[in-house]
Every structure is written in structure tokens, then in C-alpha cells.
Amino acid sequence: MQIADRSTVMNIEKVIFGFFIILALTLNFGFVMGEISDPEHHNVYEFFAVIVVNFIAMGLKLGDRSQIGALLLATSLVAVLQLISAAVVWTVAVHVTQTGLSPGVTASIVSLAGGALLANIVSVVMLVADTLMSGR
């Protein structure tokens, strides 16, 4: 019997891991897309999905003791922090101060989400680089 070459075996864990990290980036990108101060261009459900997927991505990165794992976790923490800040701004504007989604508020929410987007890009670049470097 031949020992299977590891590169030919698809690892379901790697698939889920990659899926959520890339989904976090794509959703984030989709939310940020559009006129920065126009609330019509930024959907609340999409924003919810971005937060949930980023949390899941962070959860998946926990417990990896490798050097690259530590950096991946750090990027996720940054993204989650930025998105929570954006969510807090949104909640305060709509429910606490009752100002609603004025262009200024929308711009600040989207710019915070844009920061998270950058962190997610770094995360995906590192993931791809690590996969290529491992040589299989």
C-alpha cells in the first residue's frame, strides 16, 4: 500500500479555516463598498454578518502555538475590536442620542469597518503566504 502524499489529501479543517478567514474579508469588503457617508449603501444585516464571521474566524485561530498563528490571532483581534467600535457608534447614534444615521455617523462607522478590512487583508495575505511557504 502506498502512503498517500499529504498534498493530495484535502484537510477539512484547513478548508473551514480558510473559508471563514476569506469570508470575513469578502463580507467586510462588501459592507465598506459604496459612498462612505450614504447609509443606503451600507446594510445593517451585512454588518451583522461581518461581525459574526469575524468572531468565528477569531475563535478558529485560538490555540495555535505557531509564530504565524499568533500573528493571525492578532489581526483578528484588531478586526473584531474595530468592528465592535463601529457597532457601538451605530447603536449610540440610533438608540441613545437619537441622531440617526447622519452622513457623519455613517462615515465614521464605515471608516472603522474599513480599518477592520485592512486587518482582514493582512490576515488573508499571511494565510496564503504560509500555505505557499509550507511547500505543499
Binding site: 459574526v52 468572531f55 468565528i56 477569531m58 475563535g59 478558529l60 485560538l62 490555540g63 502555538r65 505557531s66 509564530q67 504565524i68 498563528g69 499568533a70 504560509d130
Partner: peptide, 26 residues
């Protein structure tokens, strides 16, 4: 496998143990 970081063992065990509960909660 990348070389292990200096992240010490206790933190690593805590993080690995908390991974599943955190994912379920999310």
C-alpha cells in the same frame, strides 16, 4: 509545521480549550 512561539504552555492550553466554547457561543 512552523516553529512554536514563546507563547507559554498555560496560555496555549487555555486558548485551545476555549476555542470550541467560544465558537459555539458565537
Amino acid at each position: 509545521m512552523a516553529k512554536t512561539s514563546d507563547l507559554d504552555r498555560v496560555t496555549a492550553i487555555v486558548l485551545r480549550f476555549m476555542r470550541a466554547p467560544i465558537l459555539v457561543l458565537v
